[in-house]
Each structure stands twice: as C-alpha cells, then as structure tokens.
Design a binder for these strands. Structure first.
Lengths: 167, 167
DNA sequence: CTTGGTGCAAACATTTTGCAGCACA
DNA sequence: TGTGCTGCAAAATGTTTGCACCAAG
C-alpha cells in the first residue's frame, strides 16, 4: 500500500524563499515569549524546513539535514517540529499514514489537497469558495471559524488514461 | 494535549439501526468475492461497529466488545477493521492523533466535521455545497472527483463564553 | 477436508522521555 | 551563571505478523 507516496521524500528548494527572514524572526519571537532559546539546532531545522518543497515528515528532515552535513538528533527534530507547529510556521497535513506529515503554513493561504486515488499523486489546490462555505456553516451553528482542511479524492488524467491494473 | 478527545470513547447506540441487515450482506458479499470467510468474530466486530455512535478507534471497539462479553482479540479487530474499510463500510477520519479513527461510511452522506479548537468537541456536519465546489475544482484540473474530506476548525459557543485559560 | 481465520506474543515503526553534560541569554 | 537544550538510548504507543491450532464453506 502506497496510496500517498509520491509526495513524501520531499526534495529541497533550490531558490532561497523570500520569507526565510521573517520566519526566523517569528520563531525567535515565539520562543522568547515562552522563555525558550533559539539554538543552532533549531535554526538548522527551521532552515531545512523552509527548503522543503512539499509535504514532509520527520524522516525527510533527518535525511535532508544529513545531506547538508548538519547534525541534529532525531529527538531534537521531533521536539522542534512541535515548537514550529506551536509557532504556526508549519502545520500537520493528514493522510492515511501513520507518520505525521507537515507543510509550511506561515503566510500561506490555506493549502488544500487533491489526491489521486489511483496513483497517490497529491497536488495542492486553493479553493477560495471554501472560506465562504465554512463561514456560513460555522455561523449556522453559532461557532466562530478559525480554519479548515479540505482533501478532494479524484482520479487524475494520467490514471484515467491508463488501463486499470485491477479488474 | 487532548485537542480532540471528547469524541473518542464512543458510546454505543441503543436503538437497532435499520441498516444492520444490508450491512451484514454487504460485508458477506465482499468477503465471498475475495474467497474470504464470514466468521463469528467478524460478525461481532461488524455488529459493534454499527452500534458505535460516533467516531471510534480500535481501542474503543475492544472496550465495547468486552463490555458486551464478546471476545475478539486485538489482532482480529485490526484485521477486521481493514476488511470493513475495503468493503466501504467504514472509513478513516483523520485527526491530529496517532491512532486511526473510523466512522460508518456505508450509505451515509459524506460526513464532515467541525472541531472546536478550544475544547476539542467534534460535531458532524453535512455541507452539500462542497460537492459542487469539489466537482468544479476537479473539472478545472481535468480530474474525476470520487470523494472528499472537510474539517472546519472553529471556536464553539461554550468555549467562546468561558474565559480563556491561557493568557 | 481444505483453505483461511484466530489468539497469542513477539516484532515493528514512530514518537516520547529520562538523564547527564552542554550552551545560549 | 542558571535555565533550558542536546544527544543518546530506553520506554511508550499503536499496529502488524509468525505460528500452531481451529473452524467455515
């Protein structure tokens, strides 16, 4: 079973994203507010996270850090992922897999996904209409909306063309 | 952290749902098609799943089966959950937790959720508009939609009333 | 009767934690 | 200079699997 696999093993960005500086500041600020420290290890993890092109998991970070000759222990990676999530810099993306997958969240519009049920290919989509729908639903129940997550399951054109494997 | 906790430990239904018979038939048929057997243990698990009022996890089933004096091993529960998912009778619901949560899927309209970010309360919602949105998005990319999943994060009225715990 | 199912316990994969020494603010 | 951080390895958690016996079809 590898329904959702082509997005894992995320490859690093080649260009320097412009938000690296503010993100670093955001993280420092968040840490300071909690009496926590901005260490070299945390900087390395943040920097590597920012370079991740797609959804990634703890193991991907470990690999990428190793590739960049930056040593950070597995325990610290897990601990830092949690801090980055608290700071709103990354957010978990939920798949039917046991490892937690993350994506950059800071300054991004809500990133929804469309997943091919045949090939497992995942593409990111933006669905502005959703905001409206969600606000309406929340209002109807008397709740105050703060966010959402949408996954669309579909068959991609590549998969539709190919003769199905099972039958 | 127990952001999503009040929906776990699902309590059993008291009334006999009308779809118990067709569901049983669906499961038998699915099993037979694969040369698999409909055993007493599988019947017990299906019956208990049907009685689950809400989203549940493997452990909830184990508890409920024990409460009903029906002995099924943990291994068999996990194996049966997978079969029920194959048969389209249940489907995984994704939360930010490591255990897999399931809900009845057969014959149900798509069941989406609204989750209180303060209390963790989860309510099920039906958002008919989503179907439209999803079909449009898929069409725009040339994909054929087959399903979706939506979670709305919001603050419930109870939580909004109470003074926040953290400053 | 044959093939697949069950329970058990051990194996597994991922994530968390205790602890001793280290480093940032 | 003190509190928080790190790495390590061990623990914890949730799920899967090998195997000997059992039962559905």
């Amino acid at each position: 079973m590898n329904a959702v696999s082509d997005h894992t093993g995320a490859s690093p960005r080649l260009d320097e994203p412009p938000f690296i500086v503010p993100l670093c500041a955001v993280f420092r600020k968040h840490l300071k507010a909690d009496g926590q420290k901005f260490t070299a290890e945390r900087a390395r993890v943040l920097d590597t996270v920012i370079r991740m092109e797609r959804v990634f998991e703890a193991e991907d970070l470990l690999d990428e850090l190793r590739r960049r000759r930056m040593r950070v222990s597995k325990a610290t990676i897990y601990r830092t992922l949690k801090l980055l999530q608290d700071a709103g810099i990354i957010e978990p993306v939920l798949f039917d897999q046991k490892q937690t997958h993350y994506q950059l969240a800071y300054g991004q519009p809500p990133r929804d996904q469309m997943i091919c049920v045949e090939t497992g290919r995942v593409i990111e989509i933006t669905v502005p209409e959703i905001i409206d729908v969600r606000d309406r639903i929340a209002a109807r129940h008397g709740w105050s909306p703060v966010g959402h997550r949408l996954q669309i399951f579909a068959v991609s054109p590549e998969a539709a063309d190919e003769p199905s494997e099972e039958g």
